[in-house]
């Protein structure tokens, strides 16, 4: 589903991703962990071209992102993204937040888009908030709406960049619950997170990144209980 080969990315002189290769299967849930500044966000942002790629290759569902003829906007409809700070559209109601892209990108009829949006809102437990504005929602509710908004485009892959890091602790659970359900439904997911419990329970594979490299990857239990690499051990001893 996703195939990354020798991906390189620099900001000016600062090489942030040095040589990343990774294959992700359909329906697989990959959790990415690592210290702050190690390039986790940059990596998943390269997967939907929010960052331009400096070297290597990224294939999404067989389509090459680095090929000039690939239509980035079509790729992006296949790759949903959930951000740390939600990025809901503050001037739109919750319902309009969700229907905006389906109606304008997929040219879906308003009625159909709204029915679909209501279905998704029910799925994330927020149907009663349809006509509210983002301002009036709690962080956890905002993030659930953001997930529903991404799902409305029927993506094949979902990327999550620290979706619970900006939340008060009591709201982390409700968002992780929605993500667990999504994983159960068979979504292909890449999740950057510090929630090791989630990684263990839901992840098929955990990747440890440091300093622009993938240092180590394994099944969650193996990686958490028997880390092979010195830097993985050092990191885990700090966060676990």
């Amino acid at each position: 589903m996703i195939s990354v080969k020798n991906l390189k990315k620099s900001f000016g002189d600062n090489e942030v991703l040095k040589d990343i290769s990774l294959d992700v299967d359909s329906q697989e849930v990959v959790v990415v962990i690592g210290p702050s500044g190690s390039g986790k966000s940059t990596f998943i942002r390269c997967l939907n071209m929010l960052e331009t790629i400096n070297g290597g290759q990224v294939l999404i569902d067989g389509k090459d992102l680095t090929d000039k003829n690939t239509n980035i906007n079509t790729i992006r409809t296949d790759v949903g993204m959930v951000f740390q700070h939600f990025n809901l559209f503050p001037h739109k109601t919750i319902l309009d937040n969700i229907t905006l892209a389906p109606m304008n990108v997929r040219k879906m009829k308003k009625k159909e888009a709204e029915e679909k949006a209501m279905g998704l809102l029910e799925k994330v437990g927020l149907a009663e908030k349809a006509s509210a504005y983002p301002e009036s929602l709690s962080g956890g509710q905002k993030q659930r709406v953001a997930i529903a908004r991404a799902l409305a485009m029927e993506p094949k892959i979902m990327l999550f960049d620290e979706p619970t890091s900006a939340l008060d602790p009591e709201m982390v659970g409700e968002v992780l619950e929605v993500m667990k359900q999504l994983a159960k439904d068979g979504m292909t997911m890449i999740v950057v997170t510090h929630e090791m419990g989630f990684a263990r329970e839901v992840g098929d594979r955990v990747i440890f990144m440091d300093n622009g490299y993938i240092i180590e990857q394994n099944e969650p239990t193996a990686l958490f209980d028997k880390p092979q690499h010195k830097r993985t051990k050092a990191f885990l001893s700090k966060v676990l």
């Binding site: 929010l50 993204m81 559209f89 990108v105």
Partner: peptide, 25 residues
């Protein structure tokens, strides 16, 4: 900046994102 990124990540073109998300705000 997150507003433009969210709009683009949903598949909107730059022009659509401007028109529907950035300019109204």
């Amino acid at each position: 900046k997150g507003q433009m990124e969210a709009a683009r990540s949903l598949g909107m073109t730059r022009v659509q994102a401007m028109k529907l998300v950035i300019l109204p705000q």
